[in-house]
Design a protein around this nucleic acid. Sequence first.
DNA 1: CTTGAAATACTACTACG
DNA 2: CGTAGTAGTATTTCAAG
Lengths: 173, 173
Amino acid sequence: MCATKLRRPSTGASRTEPAPLSQHDRIDRAILKQLQQDASISNVALAAKVKLSAPACLRRVERLKEMGLIRATVALLDPKAVGAGMLVVIGVVLDRSTPETFAAFEKAAQKVSGCMECHVVTGEFDYFMLVRTRDSESFNRLHAEQLLYLPGVRQIRSFMVLKEILSTTRFPL
Amino acid sequence: MCATKLRRPSTGASRTEPAPLSQHDRIDRAILKQLQQDASISNVALAAKVKLSAPACLRRVERLKEMGLIRATVALLDPKAVGAGMLVVIGVVLDRSTPETFAAFEKAAQKVSGCMECHVVTGEFDYFMLVRTRDSESFNRLHAEQLLYLPGVRQIRSFMVLKEILSTTRFPL
DNA sequence: CTTGAAATACTACTACG
DNA sequence: CGTAGTAGTATTTCAAG
């Protein structure tokens, strides 16, 4: 249960960073590729896919977790089914660009219900947020009750998503 | 292995849609909440958490999958560790607003390497894309080699993400 | 340092009450 | 929905490359 083994990287690894990436074998990449697509697969089936024995495969998966390469394995739900069928992209401009202003906004933004993403960006906006709500009515409520009360906001522009063309959690490997 | 049971909804369900949502019990919500956070939990542990016997819990989970409420369970990887540490929000304006123009763009956009999200939006942009790359250099390459060749594009504005404040796959339940 | 084979412990899954 | 039983899996131990 302890994490006292971390020999693998072979290339010297930084301390706090998850992993320098470097050259993961073809097998590790195959494992990640599979788990990114479907992590409900049993270990024996995964082992067969990557042509490895079950214990060896399990060890690699656990090492990938310890190394922080696999952050979590989660269930992805259907947005409509859980009352979050509407997606809105929100561009935010702050009043002033001081550390306090940014900190206050970020703290508050994380509490906005349905906020999936929030990022500091370059360009004409200070932040982009992605927020999920049930429908336009509930977004209006969110807009009036929460977004307009975010601290230090000069302008907030909402881009309602009409159609989701692509939405994935899989990185190219 | 067959999906011939779907009595639960009690409210008449539509055919093609995943689920009308309706009133899922406190237990189903607890299950979803947990699996959204960590789906690597064993069924017995999950059953204990929601105060149910293991078989009953498993039946619920499988029903939630059959109903399409749980779309998939996947591993979330560390972006930096897999060479996708940079995130860029991209606003796209098309030349003309014809069905063919939109279709061509959408088809091409899905093939952009590292494209995580692509959505049709209202407002001054036609699309918002979220693209992941290794660093600013590789983004420049992507920009020159792929983005500028997307069909029917009048303007494309890139907002580089300086800091990711929040990024989650969990919907509020 | 990693792998594979065998043994154990635990879990998923089925049938039934 | 719960209990009990079976089948299969995860996980450890250990020997070998």
